[in-house]
Design a protein around this nucleic acid. Sequence first.
RNA 1: GCCCCGGUAGCUCAGCGGAUAGAGCAGCUGCCUUCUAAGCAGCGGGUCGCAGGUUCGACUCCUGCCCGGGGCGCCA
Length: 580
Amino acid sequence: MVKEALRERIEAALRALLVAAGDEDALPEFAIEVPRQKEHGDFSCNAAMLLAKRLGRKPREIAEELRERLGDAGGLVAGVEVAGPGFLNVRLAESGWQDLLHDMIAAGAHYGRAKESGAPRPRVQVEFVSANPTGPLSTGHGRQAVLGDCIARLLEATGCDVTREYYFNDGGRQMRVLGDSVKARYLEQLGRAASPTAEALADPEQAWAEERDGLPVVFPKDGYQGDYISQIAASLVEREGESLVDEPGEGRFREEAQRVIFEDIEGTLTRIGIHFDVYYNERSLYDEGKIEETIADLRAAGLVYDADGAVWLKATARGLDRDRVVVKSTGEPTYLLPDIAYHREKFRRGFDRVIDVQGADHIEQFPFVREAAAVLGIDPGRIELVMHQFVTITSGGERVKQSTRRATFVTVDELVDDVGADVFRFFMIERKPDGHLDFDLDLAKDKNWRKNPAYYVQYAHARTHGIERKAREAGVAMPRAHGFDSGRLVLPEEIELVKKLATFPEVVTRAAESREPHHVAYYLREVAGLWNPYLQDGDRHRVLSEDEGLSAARLGLALAVRNVLASGLDLLGVGAPERM
RNA sequence: GCCCCGGUAGCUCAGCGGAUAGAGCAGCUGCCUUCUAAGCAGCGGGUCGCAGGUUCGACUCCUGCCCGGGGCGCCA
């Protein structure tokens, strides 16, 4: 808000300068930023340097003229300096910062978020998790779940109408193997089959048609080995006895496994505060003829051809490095074809923009979907990919080994059992999506608020309530938004806090536009990093003192800090407790 | 071999083409005993993987190379 006002003033000065020079071209895209060094003022502007070549003048000379034309910018500015190669360093009047505090408190939970404008909000779909129901959610899914949900929250905060969607496939080979795995355990538990040896399980290439102790081994190649499979089998033994011995794996066994596992996944998601608006089943695309339609349209557009008994997507015609099979020679589509049909349906359903959140192992697929969609008449610029890298877990300075095949991976549920949903979410969102995430289990388990960054931020928030409780005990009321004299906040650490709070709207905008929620987490650490020491150093500035006016001003500051911390934590889906 | 992502302090990581590259933890020094649980102040610590290029200006953009992770199926 301050920055925008300043930008308008500088633009006006710039325009005047250009007109005086007889230059009618557009204004340069100059930047206004908060300098790293405090001596460089509150904001610095690089406009003069950008114009040096165009006007054939020295940048410092242009900056000097800009400075004169800017004046005091209607009382907003306390001082402007020309510095370095031609920067315009602007120092704002202290009262400007103090006034801002009242506005922040008055805006309440809306501070930093898009205003209700009445204009139609863009409809955005965020698709994430989308794990097929073959097992519990792993840490990689967990990261994706938190990332997708935070992006959705940020988009909502910046004025979008968001749909959270989970795409899954309960048919296909994967699910047959799942059913067969459950049946194998079922037969084992009934004493009708032998359990495969550990060596055999470790090597999916090994033959399964072996026998042990006179019993056949029926465990499928690449079968699912987790304990949860045995548990599902055990419940079937208990409820159905031996009646399912002749049932095929892909019948009741698959159905039961899918039901139980999906319930488990939804339960896990609920635990970490994630709710989907739509669960979209790939199978419905078949049932509604969308697959047929898509292949026909691709064919009509000349983007598919037949070879080797299969149908290929002519991706090389769209600049990709190879073609891909969309219908196997068996007549069964590959994963790619329904994915294309699915994306087309997304836009038919009215979304203006579609965001796919996917793990790094999945991204190879994306260009094919995008190009096929483009051929089907969809603007590829409206399909967006947010890719994230994997998660490793560190404990005792060592990496915890994970293997999907042997089902020794750490599940989201186990982590949440250990550290709680809030810490889990905070740690999962702290890193930028396209970097590896090292989940430090020891630090996450540490209850010390000074060490654990999630608690550090939450505690900074709780402390504002602690102060309020203290104030109430002393019979002091919390001030209203404009009911205190912010001019009493003159200490450098107080002004610094206000300045930091003032940048919250920019942080939200940037995090939303870049689809990088970690900016919010970092920002919250910075706010807490100012607020916690401020309170700790109570000798120099107690919030509650004999001086009523000063107490009110500092309580106002506490309210603004609370506002921003609560709002930021909400954007991350992390709780903001009133006491800890 | 090709494609994607990383490489920044001892460790984990921020860094929106700008000025003297930052935070937390760890280490060192001094002070202090809390509006909630060892805090506060300070110090040391860097060839921003390497080499070119673009630019008034590059950790940031481009090209090549090195290292690490992932992906390159008629799997999903």
